[in-house]
Amino acid sequence: MTSETQETLDHSLHSFASDCNAHEKLRVMNRDWNRTIHIHATDLNCHFTLTTQQSSVTVSAGAPDHADLVVMGDAELLTQIFYGELSPNEPYNEGTLRLKGSEEDILRLDFVTAMLWGE
Protein backbone atom coordinates (compact mmCIF):
# COMPACT_ATOMS: atom_id res chain seq x y z
CA MET A 1 0.00 0.00 0.00
CA THR A 2 2.83 2.36 0.97
CA SER A 3 4.73 1.56 -2.17
CA GLU A 4 1.59 2.00 -4.28
CA THR A 5 0.86 5.43 -2.71
CA GLN A 6 4.46 6.45 -3.30
CA GLU A 7 4.24 5.34 -6.92
CA THR A 8 1.08 7.37 -7.45
CA LEU A 9 2.72 10.47 -5.92
CA ASP A 10 5.73 9.91 -8.17
CA HIS A 11 3.39 9.68 -11.18
CA SER A 12 1.53 12.86 -10.16
CA LEU A 13 4.81 14.79 -9.95
CA HIS A 14 5.92 13.61 -13.39
CA SER A 15 2.48 14.45 -14.75
CA PHE A 16 2.78 17.96 -13.18
CA ALA A 17 6.26 18.43 -14.68
CA SER A 18 5.10 17.44 -18.16
CA ASP A 19 2.05 19.76 -17.88
CA CYS A 20 4.40 22.62 -16.92
CA ASN A 21 6.78 21.86 -19.79
CA ALA A 22 3.94 21.75 -22.30
CA HIS A 23 2.40 25.06 -21.18
CA GLU A 24 3.84 27.86 -23.33
CA LYS A 25 2.64 30.81 -21.20
CA LEU A 26 3.95 29.14 -18.08
CA ARG A 27 7.33 28.61 -19.69
CA VAL A 28 7.48 32.33 -20.46
CA MET A 29 6.46 33.27 -16.92
CA ASN A 30 9.02 30.96 -15.36
CA ARG A 31 11.89 31.80 -17.72
CA ASP A 32 13.94 33.28 -14.86
CA TRP A 33 12.46 31.32 -11.95
CA ASN A 34 15.20 28.79 -11.31
CA ARG A 35 14.42 26.97 -8.10
CA THR A 36 14.95 23.69 -6.25
CA ILE A 37 11.76 22.50 -4.58
CA HIS A 38 11.78 19.76 -1.99
CA ILE A 39 8.58 17.67 -1.85
CA HIS A 40 8.19 15.82 1.44
CA ALA A 41 5.36 13.30 1.95
CA THR A 42 5.26 13.39 5.73
CA ASP A 43 3.20 10.22 6.34
CA LEU A 44 5.52 8.05 4.21
CA ASN A 45 8.62 10.11 5.00
CA CYS A 46 9.59 10.02 1.35
CA HIS A 47 11.20 12.82 -0.60
CA PHE A 48 11.34 14.15 -4.15
CA THR A 49 13.07 17.08 -5.79
CA LEU A 50 11.34 19.28 -8.33
CA THR A 51 13.76 21.48 -10.24
CA THR A 52 12.80 24.45 -12.41
CA GLN A 53 15.64 25.57 -14.65
CA GLN A 54 15.19 27.96 -17.58
CA SER A 55 11.48 27.13 -17.98
CA SER A 56 12.05 23.42 -17.80
CA VAL A 57 10.70 21.34 -14.90
CA THR A 58 12.24 18.00 -13.90
CA VAL A 59 11.53 15.54 -11.09
CA SER A 60 13.99 13.32 -9.29
CA ALA A 61 13.78 10.97 -6.33
CA GLY A 62 15.19 11.96 -2.95
CA ALA A 63 15.72 15.23 -1.09
CA PRO A 64 18.05 17.97 -2.36
CA ASP A 65 20.97 19.18 -0.24
CA HIS A 66 19.59 22.72 -0.24
CA ALA A 67 16.13 23.80 -1.33
CA ASP A 68 14.53 27.16 -2.12
CA LEU A 69 11.14 25.85 -1.13
CA VAL A 70 9.88 22.86 0.86
CA VAL A 71 6.36 21.49 0.28
CA MET A 72 5.06 19.19 3.02
CA GLY A 73 1.87 17.21 3.41
CA ASP A 74 0.64 13.66 3.43
CA ALA A 75 1.16 11.68 0.23
CA GLU A 76 -2.50 11.57 -0.82
CA LEU A 77 -2.88 15.34 -0.41
CA LEU A 78 0.28 16.03 -2.43
CA THR A 79 -0.88 13.60 -5.10
CA GLN A 80 -4.25 15.37 -5.41
CA ILE A 81 -2.52 18.75 -5.69
CA PHE A 82 0.00 17.69 -8.32
CA TYR A 83 -2.68 15.99 -10.41
CA GLY A 84 -4.67 19.24 -10.24
CA GLU A 85 -7.54 17.46 -8.49
CA LEU A 86 -7.39 19.87 -5.56
CA SER A 87 -6.45 23.55 -5.36
CA PRO A 88 -3.56 24.00 -2.90
CA ASN A 89 -5.31 27.01 -1.32
CA GLU A 90 -7.84 25.04 0.67
CA PRO A 91 -5.43 22.65 2.46
CA TYR A 92 -2.98 25.54 2.89
CA ASN A 93 -5.63 27.64 4.64
CA GLU A 94 -6.60 24.63 6.74
CA GLY A 95 -2.97 24.13 7.78
CA THR A 96 -2.72 20.58 6.36
CA LEU A 97 -0.38 21.65 3.55
CA ARG A 98 2.86 23.19 4.84
CA LEU A 99 5.28 25.30 2.80
CA LYS A 100 8.66 26.58 3.83
CA GLY A 101 10.45 29.24 1.82
CA SER A 102 10.16 32.88 0.82
CA GLU A 103 6.70 34.41 0.34
CA GLU A 104 7.59 35.15 -3.30
CA ASP A 105 8.43 31.51 -4.04
CA ILE A 106 5.33 30.23 -2.26
CA LEU A 107 3.22 32.66 -4.25
CA ARG A 108 4.96 31.73 -7.52
CA LEU A 109 4.18 28.05 -6.96
CA ASP A 110 0.55 29.05 -6.49
CA PHE A 111 0.78 31.11 -9.71
CA VAL A 112 1.99 27.97 -11.50
CA THR A 113 -0.95 25.87 -10.30
CA ALA A 114 -3.33 28.77 -11.06
CA MET A 115 -2.07 28.97 -14.62
CA LEU A 116 -2.25 25.21 -15.14
CA TRP A 117 -5.65 24.52 -13.65
CA GLY A 118 -7.20 27.44 -11.88
CA GLU A 119 -7.24 30.68 -13.84
Binding site: A41, N45, C46, H47, G62, D65, H66, D68, L69
Partner: peptide, 14 residues
Protein backbone atom coordinates in the same frame (compact mmCIF):
# COMPACT_ATOMS: atom_id res chain seq x y z
CA UNK B 1 10.52 6.74 -6.66
CA UNK B 2 11.23 8.63 -3.45
CA UNK B 3 13.61 7.23 -0.89
CA UNK B 4 13.05 7.21 2.84
CA UNK B 5 15.16 9.79 4.63
CA UNK B 6 15.22 11.37 8.06
CA UNK B 7 16.74 14.81 7.58
CA UNK B 8 14.83 17.33 5.43
CA UNK B 9 16.82 19.67 3.19
CA UNK B 10 17.88 23.03 4.56
CA UNK B 11 16.65 26.21 2.87
CA UNK B 12 19.08 28.13 0.66
CA UNK B 13 17.84 31.50 1.93
CA UNK B 14 16.52 32.25 5.40
Amino acid sequence: MGRIEEAPASLKRS
